Simulated assay, not measured.
Amino acid sequence: MTARYCSLPRQPAPSFAPGLAAERLSALTGGRRMWVNGTVLHYYFFDAGTDASVIPVPGTGETRRVSWVGAEEQREVVREGFRQWQHLGIGVTFAEVGDRREAELRVGFQSGDGCWSAVGRDALAVGRGERTMNFGWDLTAPGERGTALHEIGHALGMLHEHQSPVAGIHWDDEAVYADLAGPPNFWTRDTTYANILRRLDACEVNGSVWDPQSVMGFTLGPGLVLEPEQYRAGLRPPGSLSPADKEFALRWYPPPGPARPPVLVPFRSAPLRLGSGAQADFTVEPPETRAYRVGTFGDADSVLVVFEERDGEPRYLAGRDDGGTPGNATVRVRLVSGRRYVVRVRLYSTWGSGETAVMCW
């Protein structure tokens, strides 16, 4: 029998201005979902009786409510998944919160709705009362704990490994469609194509080579893969973080350095001097309480985020992504004297000949 598979929510393709250079477009496509390093991702488990979906009852014209609230043993599997990713030493950290308004990641357990997650920063476009992640079957069943690791990988910005164009997989398309149309997935052809057969753009993949052991891959039954020949009888990843999974996460989210970031002094620009995908961090200690602007300068595509330190933890205050536009990322925020703020700038790429910089004024 076919395994149960993650089904990612369909998202419209990104829309960039026509005429962008191929290198610039590749950087935008590959990095647009990734968080700035140093982000604290707060996660929340739905816990109210009103947290539910209303779904139709087939053939009756009636509806029923299906809860998003999960049992404690299910929540603990997800917590352990967050801990395993965290123990890699990545620069993004996870913190459970009891208020959904404070959470970037909101986890539900609607039975029958499959397992899925928003990918990386796509979660920010989801309404505060809605799920960004769902677990629709028993995570404590044998072999299912890796499902939590898989969905958290999506939340970090990773995509399905078996869809990598460097994998060299040749599918028996009709066998795949027929297999996924039956139990336990009951997928439409569109869902099967989007989550299995569609090849990703080369700049979206998790690494430069295919990793058949990745936690972001699927268990495959016999008869679905024609090539490589050794996988005609099936493929069963171990359901744990592979060395390549760990390398990818640490490359995008390296451990923080021991030193405090340099101070960004108001009205004094700081050169960035960043390569593609690199990040610069600064602290701001405003001399007076007022509205400030924080922005980048130069011919570059970047993500700029301002955090306020609260009890030693950076909390999101404002952010802007200027990727693919002719302008620069600028935010207007009220900063309070006596408090400390952190500015993080992650670069997609530079596309002009001048210097790039960041300034607070």
Rank of each mutant, 00 (worst) to 15 (best):
G352S: 02
C360E: 00
A181K: 09
D322M: 04
A148F: 13
V119A: 09
A141W: 00
E96N: 06
E161G: 00
S269V: 12
G91L: 06
P237G: 03
G157D: 04
A278V: 02
D211Q: 11
G153R: 00
V176I: 15
E247I: 02
P9K: 11
F297G: 06
P238E: 15
R339T: 11
S240L: 09
V343H: 07
T192A: 14
G38A: 02
E76V: 13
E309L: 15
G108P: 10
V119F: 13
R260N: 06
L28F: 14
R121W: 06
R10W: 10
P262C: 01
D201E: 03
S276N: 15
P287T: 01
V263R: 12
G59R: 10
R24L: 01
L20Y: 11
A202S: 08
N37P: 02
Y193D: 14
P266K: 03
P18H: 02
E76T: 15
P183K: 08
P9V: 07
V265A: 03
A95E: 06
G298S: 11
S214A: 08
P326I: 01
A22L: 06
A3V: 04
W137R: 08
C6R: 13
S353L: 10
P165M: 10
L149I: 12
A118G: 13
G298Q: 10
R101G: 06
R145A: 14
A181C: 09
G354A: 10
A123E: 10
W171D: 03
P18N: 01
R198M: 07
T2G: 00
R332C: 14
P258V: 11
S117E: 07
A233E: 15
P165H: 08
F282R: 05
R131V: 13
F82N: 10
P256H: 13
T289W: 09
L272M: 12
A329T: 04
R344C: 06
R106L: 14
W68S: 15
E104G: 08
V97W: 08
L224C: 07
L226F: 04
C6K: 12
A167G: 11
T191E: 13
T93K: 13
E313M: 01
A13Y: 00
T50C: 00
R75E: 15
D99M: 13
P165E: 05
L41H: 07
Q11C: 03
